[in-house]
Amino acid sequence: MNTRPAPEEVDELFRRYAQTRRRRDRNSLVEAHMGFANHIAKRYRNRTIAEEDLRQVAFLALVKAVERFDPEAGAAFTSFAGRTIEGEIKRHFRDAAWSVRVPRSTKELHLRVRRTSDELGHELSRSPTVKEVAAHLGVSTDQVVEALGASAAFTHGSLDSAANDDDSAAPDRSAHVAQTDERLESSDDRLVIRGLVDRLPSREQEIVRLRFFEELTQSEIAERVGVSQMHVSRLLRRSFELMRQASDLA
């Protein structure tokens, strides 16, 4: 690890980087502020988002901040970078966090639909159609479709539970994830969630399983699946959105 340069050296590096855009100067600037980025990331640490993922988000935000910083604008880099890093972390929380609540009746219908679907599947030696399941259960096709999308809650923590959250800038309330009385541990919920996960494209299924059932970090998943960590983050976000949309039908 390089020794941290003195403030006047940092100023000089920024001025030089603004003129030359040399990557080596950029690297020195990033390295000089890594501790700062990690410090901000730590403030948002909680048990539901892997610290490694937070550090990665903060790191990339730092790189972007160094690239965009204008030393002539008069602001201190740390205040500019601090805002950039916090913004990206909050966005990450907002994207990564979700929670849904499903009425009991819909959950029950979901289970009945699944059971009926299995039974009819055996009888017909193929997957039954929605109409067939609806006729068998004596409900409308809309209700079957709705029940197929039912979900229990995936609760992914909230910014309010972030460790050492003594930040004067209040946590982004829109990122807050309501705690629900539904827990992943319940076997019914697991069944419903598995049903929802099964509806995702195969790669998303794998990523969601690795994240929530094997509890790998986004970086570990990226390595295993062979895409970038940010791509994993986006695939998870998209999967949550698809599942959330499905559960909103309930």
């Binding site: 790191f59 990339l60 960590q229 998209r238």
Partner: peptide
């Protein structure tokens, strides 16, 4: 670290290199 975070594949050695990124389907 940067390339690992932003692209799906990369390879850089000496005066040659490549990166690849797929869009989300």
């Amino acid at each position: 670290q940067i390339l690992g975070a932003v692209v799906d594949e990369y390879e850089i050695a000496g005066g040659q290199g490549r990166i690849a990124k797929s869009r989300m389907r």
